[in-house]
């Protein structure tokens, strides 16, 4: 993590206008965490993120997306809190 790294927390499905706005704002040094409906972007290969990527396990399980998310790094709530604590800047989309 670099000092100018931003943590992006995305909870919108791909068809929500803010989803694309978030993807457009990603820099290679940033970290994107998919939570809530954000994890739906992993279904049907819709997700193209140019940076470090995590997805929240509880939201994947709720939506039965384990298979679609098998190549993603998953985190739990505690690890999400860790990420928010270690990034100097956070955007909640």
């Amino acid at each position: 993590m670099t000092s100018n790294s931003t943590l992006h927390i995305l909870n919108k499905a791909p068809e929500h206008p803010r989803y694309q706005a978030c993807i457009n704002a990603l820099a290679p040094s940033d970290t994107l965490v998919l939570i809530e409906n954000g994890v739906l972007s992993a279904a049907g290969n819709q997700l193209h993120a140019p940076c470090t990527l995590y997805a929240l396990k509880a939201d994947i399980d709720a939506r039965a997306l384990e298979a679609a998310c098998e190549n993603l790094n998953t985190i739990d709530y505690d690890e999400l809190v860790q990420l928010t604590a270690t990034h100097p800047k956070i955007i909640s989309w």
């Binding site: 499905a13 791909p14 409906n37 399980d61 939506r63 039965a64």
Partner: peptide, 19 residues
């Protein structure tokens, strides 16, 4: 329709999100 089709996916386990 739209993201609503995700209602129909088999194997949902929402215990972790409390719903």
């Amino acid at each position: 329709t739209g993201a609503g089709v995700n209602w129909l996916r088999k194997g949902q386990r929402p215990d972790g999100v409390g719903q």
